[in-house]
Nucleic acid binder design. Structure first.
Length: 504
RNA sequence: GCCCCGUUGGUGCAGCGGCCUAGCACGCCAGCCUUUCAAGCUGGAGAUCACGGGUUCGAAUCCCGUACGGGGUACCA
C-alpha cells in the first residue's frame, strides 16, 4: 500500500450514468470519492456518462444531482458548475468529437481497428462458442482487414465500430490500492469495442479520455470494474498516458448476499429521504460501509469523517446493507435534533392527506405540534408519516374511539375501574396547577386513597385518554390534551364501563 | 465454463506476526430505572477468526490448496 497522505494534488470524480434512480451503493462510491477529496484538499468532479443512448432515463441526471445535493456532496467541477475541462457531460463532449479523435489516434498508432461485423454475426459467433463450451468473445475477424476491403464495405453502407487491438500475449499487471498487484492474461480478453456504430464511445474509451484530460489522479470505483481494468491499462499504454491510481471499492450486498439492487426493495437513495431518514444519518451510515477510521467511533459528523478518512481504512470485503442498524442510527440523529427542528419536519407529514385523519382540520397549530415533540422525540426511529400520525392523532382529535376492555387493568374489574376513573375525573377537574409534576403527585396520592397500584390507575387512565396501551408519559399527555378534554375522556371511559354511558 | 476478488459471532466494523483468555457497534436476552413504550444504564448469550496444509520460537494476521460467496465474461455502465 502506498501512503495516502503525501500524494500531492488529488482529483477524483464521480461518474454516474443516468440510467435510473441512483441507489445507495452508487452514492456510497460518490461519498467516498468526495470524502477523500475533501480530506486531501483536492477536487471532487462530477461527470455524467450518458453514452448509452438506449438506457437513458428521463430525469435520472436531475435525480442524481439531487441525491448528491441532499447528502451534502458538493462538487468543484461538473454539471451546473462548469470548470476548466467543461463540458462535463459526455454526450456534449462527444459532440466536440473528443472520442472520435481519440479512437482515430489509436487506429493510427496501430492499437485499434475498424470492424464491420454485424450484430447478427457476433450473436452467431457467441452461440457457437457456447455450444462448443469455449469462452465467448470476438474472434478478431476484422483485425487484419486491408484498408481497401474496409473502404469497400463501408461504401456498401456497412456500419462499423472501432475495436481495441488486445495484444495476443504477454500479461497485464496493475496495482489495485486495496488488493495489491493484479495480473491478467490479455489473451483471455477480447478485442473490445471502444467506439460504437452510433458514434458514441463505450465506457472504456470515454472514461479514459476524460479522466486523462481532467487530470484525475485516483479512480475510486466499484469492485465490478476490476475485470475491465486491464483493458483500461492497455488503453493508457496505447495512448502513452499515465494511468491513475486504482482503488476498487467493495460492493454493497443485499440481505441475501447478492449485489444490492432494486430487487432488494427500496435502494434508491432518495427513497430513504422520502421514508424519513435524515441526510446526516445516510452520510454517516454509508461512510461506515467498507470503511473504518480504525477506532471504534461510529457516530460521526461529516467533518469527523473527512478528518479521519484514509484509503488505508477501506475494506476490500463486500458489506451487507443493514437497515436495522440504519434505523438505529437515524434514531440517534433524530434525538440530536432540537425540538423546533423536529417540529418543522413533523408538521408537513402530519398535515399530509395520508397523515392525520381527514377530520382534523389543517393547517395545524405549529406551537402545539412543537409542544408535542418532546413526548415522542426519543421514540422515533424514522419520520414515517403514518407512524407519526398514529402516535399523535389523539392529541388532535376531539373524541377517541375506545375499547372498554382495554381500559381494565390487571387485578381490576369493570366496576372498580369505573369508580376509580370517576374519582380520577373529579381530581382532574380540580387539580391545581394543571402541570405534569403536580398532577403526578396528586394522582399518586389518589392511588393510595383508592388502594391501587400506580400501574393500575395510570394504565386505566392512559387507555382512557389515548385509546392506546402504549403512549408517552401520562401526565405530560394530560397537559397536552388539556383539562377539559381529559376530564371528558376519563368520564366517558368510566361511563362505558359502568354501562350508563352512551357508546359514541 | 473461463477469469478476477473476497471470507473475523445474525449484521456493520477493529485487528496489519507476540499486548487476542479476539475489541466496539447494531440486533437479541436479562436486570435496573419506571405509569406503558421508548431512551438511558448494567450484565449476558453468541466467533474452534470458512476449512486443510505449510512458514515461524510464535498466525485471525504471511504462503499454498479446497470450499463457499460475490463480481466479470456486451456496439451496458
Amino acid at each position: 500500500m502506498t501512503d495516502t497522505l503525501n500524494l500531492g494534488p488529488v482529483r477524483v470524480r464521480y461518474a454516474p450514468s443516468p440510467t435510473g434512480d441512483p441507489h445507495v451503493g452508487n452514492l456510497r462510491t460518490a461519498l467516498l470519492n468526495w470524502v477523500f477529496a475533501r480530506h486531501a484538499g483536492g477536487q471532487f468532479i462530477v461527470r455524467i456518462e450518458d453514452t448509452d443512448r438506449e438506457r437513458m432515463v428521463d430525469g435520472a441526471e436531475e435525480r442524481i444531482l439531487e441525491a448528491l445535493d441532499w447528502l451534502g456532496l458538493d462538487w468543484d467541477e461538473g454539471p451546473g458548475k462548469g470548470g476548466p475541462f467543461a463540458p462535463y457531460v459526455q454526450s456534449e463532449r462527444k459532440a466536440l468529437d473528443k472520442y472520435g479523435d481519440a479512437a482515430r489516434q489509436l487506429i493510427a498508432n496501430g492499437h485499434a481497428y475498424e470492424c464491420t461485423c454485424t450484430p447478427e454475426r457476433l450473436e452467431q459467433l457467441r452461440q457457437r462458442q457456447r455450444a462448443e463450451k469455449k469462452p465467448t468473445g470476438y474472434d478478431g475477424y476484422c483485425r487484419n482487414k486491408s484498408a481497401d476491403e474496409l473502404a469497400g464495405e463501408k461504401a456498401q453502407g456497412l456500419a462499423s465500430v472501432v475495436r481495441f487491438k488486445v495484444p495476443l500475449e504477454g500479461e497485464v499487471v496493475f496495482n489495485d490500492f486495496l488488493r495489491g498487484p493484479l495480473t491478467f492474461d490479455p489473451s483471455l480478453l477480447q478485442d473490445f469495442v471502444i467506439l460504437k456504430s452510433d458514434g458514441y464511445p463505450t465506457y472504456h474509451l470515454a472514461h479514459i479520455v476524460d479522466d486523462h484530460e481532467m487530470q484525475i489522479t485516483h479512480v475510486l470505483r466499484s469492485e465490478e470494474w476490476i475485470s475491465s481494468t486491464p483493458r483500461h491499462v492497455m488503453m493508457y499504454e496505447g495512448f502513452g498516458w499515465e494511468p491513475p491510481e486504482f482503488v476498487h471499492l467493495s460492493i454493497l450486498l443485499g440481505p441475501d448476499r447478492s449485489k444490492l439492487s432494486k430487487r432488494h426493495g427500496d435502494t434508491a437513495l432518495l427513497e430513504f429521504r422520502d421514508k424519513g431518514f435524515l441526510p446526516g444519518t445516510m452520510f454517516n451510515f454509508l461512510s461506515l460501509l467498507g470503511w473504518s477510521a480504525g477506532d471504534d467511533e461510529e457516530v460521526m459528523t461529516r467533518e469527523q469523517v473527512i478528518e479521519k478518512f484514509s484509503l488505508d481504512g477501506l475494506n476490500a470485503a463486500p458489506s451487507i446493507f443493514d437497515i436495522t442498524k440504519l434505523e438505529w442510527m437515524n434514531g440517534v440523529y433524530l434525538r440530536q435534533l432540537g425540538v423546533d427542528a423536529l417540529a418543522e419536519l413533523l408538521l408537513p407529514e402530519l398535515e399530509a392527506d395520508d397523515g392525520l385523519p381527514a377530520s382534523i382540520s389543517r393547517p395545524l397549530d405549529k406551537v402545539f405540534v412543537t409542544e408535542l415533540v418532546p413526548l415522542i422525540h426519543e421514540r422515533l426511529k424514522v419520520i414515517d408519516r403514518t407512524e407519526v400520525s398514529e402516535m399523535l392523532s389523539y392529541f388532535f382529535e376531539e373524541e377517541i374511539e375506545l375499547d372498554p376492555a382495554e381500559v381494565v387493568q390487571k387485578g381490576m374489574d369493570e366496576a372498580t375501574t369505573a369508580s376509580a376513573l370517576e374519582s380520577a375525573a373529579a381530581r382532574l377537574e380540580s387539580a391545581e396547577p394543571f402541570e405534569a409534576e403536580s398532577l403526578e403527585q396528586q394522582f399518586r396520592t389518589l392511588c393510595e386513597e383508592l388502594e391501587l397500584k400506580p400501574r393500575q390507575l395510570f394504565g386505566a387512565l392512559r387507555v382512557s385518554l389515548t385509546a392506546r396501551r402504549v403512549a408517552p408519559p401520562l401526565f405530560d399527555t394530560m397537559v397536552a390534551i388539556g383539562r377539559d378534554r381529559s376530564v371528558d375522556r376519563v368520564r366517558r371511559a368510566a361511563g362505558l364501563l359502568s354501562g350508563t354511558g352512551a357508546r359514541a
